[in-house]
Design a protein around this nucleic acid. Structure first.
Length: 269
DNA sequence: ATAAGTGTTGCGCA
DNA sequence: CTGCGCAACACTTA
């Protein structure tokens, strides 16, 4: 479930903690999550010193003088900075740093720990196909992204190739704030609705970033984010009253995923 | 105790 | 090309 707010917070934490530190050792428990052989991965990054940490959509990008480390936590997971002697029970890849500390990566189902040489990040297939970052896109850019799209607005928001960073947890409240039913089609959106949607994306994502990201994901120190279930407007609040009109929040199936919404405030027509 | 639901991404299909 | 359904695995809840 890590989406843009969690990724932004994690990247900021890592950017404070890691630059200048050298990777002394690497241990890989799940080679399947790599994009290169464990030998190539280790050869490139062992001995490398971290220079900067940033993000691209839901990917955390750690630049080192030996190349870039790309992490995607998939359906959820943690990146922890812990004493080497206190490793968590479950982890997939760990990086031993100096002073007895380890950077440990885990995820529940699947995730990616990838490597690309310095300067080659745009050759990485999953990074290269990302659309503009959901928080960086301007209103005119947003309008042009929507042009010539025909499908449902929810599908558009979740498509990382069009707009990077939004997932199925934040999309509920973004659509609620914009007053849009998830199945509204792109061509049916008025100019005012598009502007409202653009604004809703920024408001909702920033609201969570300010609180350190969602409560169900933890920081490098293992502490959960401060954006709690009470901060959600309609997401995962089936049967609870809509914060605007009091009508019960409903849960519907929208293609492969569920949607939570208020039918009064987000009419289909 | 068994089964269904859950998030992300890429792939195959019409 | 584009939008949709599905499969990949682990873990929680009914």
């Amino acid at each position: 479930m890590p989406e843009l707010p969690e990724i932004v917070c994690r990247a900021e934490e890592m950017a404070r903690a890691l630059p200048g530190r050298t990777i002394r050792g690497i241990e890989i428990l799940q080679p399947k999550c790599l994009n290169v052989t464990p030998a190539a991965f280790t050869k490139a990054l062992r001995g490398a010193t971290v220079e900067a940490v940033s993000h691209r959509g839901k990917w955390i990008v750690t630049e080192t003088n030996g190349g870039d480390l790309l992490i995607n936590l998939g359906m959820g997971g943690e990146i922890l900075l812990v004493p080497s002697r206190q490793l968590p029970a479950k982890w997939r890849v760990r990086f031993a740093l100096a002073q007895g500390k380890d950077l440990v990566v885990n995820f529940w189902w699947f995730g990616y720990v990838h490597y690309v040489p310095s300067g080659a990040i745009d050759d990485h297939p999953m990074i290269a196909t990302l659309g503009p970052d959901a928080l960086d896109v301007t209103l005119p850019q947003f309008r042009s992204l929507l042009r010539s799209r025909r499908g449902a607005v929810k599908g558009f928001l979740l498509d990382q190739a069009k707009l990077a960073g939004i997932g199925n947890a934040y999309v509920h409240d973004i659509l609620f704030r914009a007053g849009l039913h998830p199945l509204r089609t792109i061509p049916s959106l008025s100019s005012v609705e598009v502007r409202g949607l653009h604004r809703a994306i920024r408001v909702e994502l920033r609201r969570s970033i300010e609180k350190g990201g969602a409560f169900y994901e933890v920081g490098l120190d293992g502490k959960p984010g401060g954006f709690t279930a009470e901060d959600l407007l309609v997401g995962y609040r089936e049967g609870k009253p809509c914060p605007t009109c009091g009508a019960p929040v409903v849960k519907i199936k929208t293609g492969g995923t569920s949607s939570f919404l208020c039918l009064q405030c987000q009419p289909l027509l």
